[in-house]
Design a protein around this nucleic acid. Structure first.
Length: 444
DNA sequence: TCTGGGGTCCTAGGACCC
DNA sequence: TCTGGGGTCCTAGGACCC
């Protein structure tokens, strides 16, 4: 725990749904559910309007459909748009400090002590308010909740306290007063199973947890977990903000619309998964020694089978061959609902070739520097609001997304053939040919 | 038309080595 | 003759996170 509130946690509010509402004005103010739209889909994100009807993350989409009224939008998701919007936000965070730890596409920690900031409570409060305003402008209205405190755990809990669009600074010395009334579930690492175990001995709040001895806690939930919770209940958390971590495993899995029994179909699916995993390994210049097959049966029982090899692999054919052999040893009667293939035990460089250089991934990009363009007159009202990351279409130039925008110009990167990034073009912001793209998969 | 997909970390038992 | 213990690797499963 630090003496100053120098760790910031940002959590974007209902992020996927917020991006959809930004890009499709007709969705604003209405319930929006983003996630799997098929029969076995689950909800990734529900907008706050949808949450009012009970829709929640991880809920089966079928249940969300029952809960939400007609007119609710159920969307499959546009991950490229989310990633681009996320990058805009992460770039703003990196302006605050070089120490930014993205936790996921919509969440990050920032170590403000590594930047040049006034770390008093009023100082960081003003900083957070300014950050939130800049995020809203840069993303076209996506909001985030910020928590600031003397540790990661306190910052994270702070960001949860005032959602959405929240701002909570926990002053040094007040950590326990903030933590102790909260349910144990508020602590990172306390899920349904741990909460249930704690509830059985009458522990409901973090304050209750504080009264448990280390021995009681570890005997209840295990050595590492118990020791971790013992410290968290005391706001004793010195985990650093880490900018990038090496991946430890790469995997792909698929739930089928109907359970599969046909051996040929299963073999095809394994090959497809192995190609997804292998190509990602090759793109990142890694390979791994352990191949894992995951199987979920018709009754939702789930098992894994793995094999560790003498050498690391990244070749989809080899991965598929091992996964297929592992599948041969599991009971497939009754049908399989899901198959997954993963590779772990990763090491840099492929296939045990010690002298190979990592494959350089070259993205062909043709960029027209926006700097060559005339500057915008200042100040003045924007003609049209364009937002970085926004999907757009142009009758002659095709589909693309907004790279940057000024008061009366907009820079768009148009998609090239297939997935090759196309050229960047700058257009007048009021060009009538340029239109926001409608999000696909729109089901009223 | 119940329950996704991509991860991380921990535990526990057995094999094997010293 | 009898009886160890520690460390590491592998496998499988489970909890948890977003």
């Amino acid at each position: 725990m630090r003496r100053e509130p120098s760790i910031l946690h940002l959590d974007l509010d209902a992020f996927f749904a917020a991006v959809e509402q930004r890009d499709k004005p007709s969705l604003r103010g209405r319930p929006v559910v983003v996630g799997g739209t098929g029969g076995r889909g689950v909800v990734s994100t529900a907008s706050y309007e949808a949450r009012a009807f009970g829709a929640r993350s991880a809920m089966p989409t079928a249940e969300a459909r029952r809960l939400c009224p007609p007119g609710t939008a159920f969307l499959g998701g546009r991950f490229a748009a989310y990633r681009r919007t996320s990058e805009v936000v992460m770039a703003l965070l990196r302006e605050l400090s070089p120490l930014v730890e993205p936790v996921s596409i919509d969440e990050a920690y920032v170590d403000l002590a590594a930047g040049d900031h006034d770390l008093s409570v009023p100082g960081v409060t003003a900083l957070a308010a300014d950050l939130k305003a800049r995020i809203a402008v840069a993303t076209g209205g996506v909001t985030g909740s910020v928590g600031i405190g003397t540790s990661k755990a306190v910052a994270k809990i702070g960001s949860e306290l005032d959602k959405p669009d929240g701002l909570t600074v926990v002053p040094p010395g007040e950590e326990l007063a903030v933590l102790h009334p909260l349910p144990v579930r508020a602590l990172g690492g306390v899920g349904p199973a741990t909460a249930e175990r704690l509830a059985q001995i009458g522990v409901k709040t973090i304050g209750d947890l504080h009264r448990l001895s280390l021995v009681d806690l570890t005997s209840l939930v295990g050595q590492a977990h118990g020791a971790g919770l013992y410290r968290l209940a005391r706001a004793d958390d010195d985990r650093p903000v880490v900018t990038d971590r090496e991946a430890k495993s790469v995997s792909a899995e698929e739930t089928f619309a109907r359970d599969l029994t046909d051996p040929a179909r299963l073999a095809t699916e394994i090959e497809a998964l192995a190609i997804r995993v292998g190509s990602r390994l090759q793109r990142s210049g890694t390979s791994g020694r352990t191949v894992t097959l995951k199987v979920r049966r018709y009754d939702f029982s789930t098992l894994t089978r793995s094999q560790t090899l003498a050498h690391a692999v990244d070749d989809p054919r080899q991965i598929a061959e091992i996964a297929h052999r592992l599948l041969g040893a599991v009971d497939r009667s009754g049908g399989l609902r899901l198959l997954g293939v993963g590779v772990s035990g990763l090491s840099p460089y492929a296939q045990g070739d010690l002298f190979a250089e990592p494959t350089e991934v070259v993205e062909p990009v043709e960029v027209v520097e926006p700097a060559e363009l005339p500057a915008d007159p200042e100040p003045g009202p924007a003609v049209v609001a364009w937002y970085p990351g926004q999907d757009v279409v142009h009758p002659d130039l095709g589909s693309g997304w907004v790279w940057g925008s000024g008061l009366n110009r907009v820079t768009v990167r148009f998609e090239g053939p297939r997935t090759t990034p196309g050229p960047v073009r700058t257009l007048a912001a009021d060009d009538p040919d340029l239109q926001p793209a409608d999000p696909p998969d729109w089901t009223p």
